[in-house]
Design a binder for these strands. Structure first.
Length: 329
DNA sequence: AAGTTGCTCAACCGCAGGATC
DNA sequence: AGATCCTGCGGTTGAGCAACT
């Protein structure tokens, strides 16, 4: 007996979602919480398959999703993480909780791949012509020095993490950022990201008040999540993420700051901190894999600890050198 | 103004793997 | 233990739009 399709092909609507469908879906999730997608079409009367509902929710309706242009930091993170993890978009997305894997995948395929390709061919041309790209080599040198420093910092962070005084294991340390904050400000993204934002926000606000599923371990986060979505000016200090969570999972952002050489993740108001949205912690917790487990730790360790520079490090280096050498950003 | 080309991104498809019975 | 269910993931598609000719 073969596996039945996730939905009857007959009578299932495809294509873009209408605002009405969005509202139906959101109000259902408001009542029952995300999950049990199989039941969603039946219970809502939506002529959509469960997959489609889940996708619509996770990629579009889920609160806390940031839409619109990617920031430089996000671009850099994507490039770096892609170099490290390959096309594991879900894993990459777990480090950019405000972005969906679909978004990142699209962005990579449409923007970054082209950019990198362009730069690569540019460099090849230069080397073919025997031109010593002085400016490029200069910036490359600068960049490599910066990278050395960053790697050094990252190594220290890693050593700290591995040191016996700190109970936190590296595997935990290297987990994606599944923290949460309550100050995700939907209004900050000028992009209208749902077809009927206001209606849905109102409903979510209702859910926030009457959330029927407090049993979930992350229900508080859920509440906060929707709170922050519904209350655009709720950027209060309440729930401001601290650098250490209950598990002593500290300095993650610092580790990555040093690893990636980003300017500043340290402020809670930074792009990156803002990306630590509660809802994503909730929902991505369900859906996103533990990258710490996925990324072979030994590789990361090797790269960070091996002074000689592991192969991974070299590949990685050559990849990201592209970006800097041509003033990529 | 009309036609063509290129780009973007939401959505779909098929597969894999964990959960459940 | 094996069959089935359910969900998540990555690759791909195609509609809609903008830029160009």
């Amino acid at each position: 007996m073969g596996r039945p399709p996730c939905c009857d092909k007959v009578g299932v609507k495809k294509g873009p979602w209408t605002p009405e469908e969005d509202i139906i879906l959101v109000s259902y999730i408001q009542e029952h919480g995300p999950g049990n997608w199989r039941a969603v079409p039946t219970n809502t009367g939506l002529l959509r398959c469960s997959k489609s509902c889940r996708l619509r929710w996770t990629n579009y309706l889920r609160p806390g999703i940031k839409r619109g242009n990617f920031t430089d930091h996000e671009e850099k993170m994507i490039i770096h993480l892609q170099a490290l993890l390959g096309n594991r978009w879900a894993a990459i997305a777990s480090y950019l909780p405000q972005r969906t894997d679909n978004d990142i995948k699209n962005y990579w395929n449409t923007h970054l791949k082209k950019k990198l390709k362009k730069l690569q061919t540019g460099l090849e041309d230069q080397s073919k012509q025997g031109i010593s790209p002085s400016s490029s080599s200069q910036s490359r040198g600068q960049w490599e020095r910066r990278l050395q420093t960053d790697i050094h910092k990252a190594k220290q962070a890693l050593c700290d993490a591995l040191s016996p005084e700190k109970p936190t294991s590296l595997s935990f340390e290297m987990k994606p950022f599944i923290g949460y904050s309550s100050h995700v400000k939907p209004a900050q993204s000028s992009t209208a990201y749902i077809s009927s934002t206001e209606n849905i926000a109102k409903m979510l606000k209702g859910w926030m008040i009457n959330c029927p599923k407090p049993a979930s371990t992350s229900s508080a986060a859920t509440q906060q999540s929707f709170n922050s979505m519904a209350n655009t000016d709720s950027a209060s200090s309440e729930g401001t993420p601290s650098k250490a969570d209950n598990n002593g999972n500290i300095e993650l952002s610092e580790t990555f700051e040093t690893l990636f050489g980003f300017d500043s993740f340290d402020s809670p108001k930074s792009d990156f901190s803002q990306s630590l949205s509660p809802d994503t912690s909730l929902f991505q917790d369900e859906s996103k894999p533990d990258v710490g487990a996925q990324v072979p730790l030994s590789l990361l360790e090797k790269w960070l600890l091996d002074d000689g520079g592991a192969t991974l490090g070299k590949d990685y280096l050559s990849d990201i050198t592209l970006d800097d050498s041509a003033n990529f950003f």
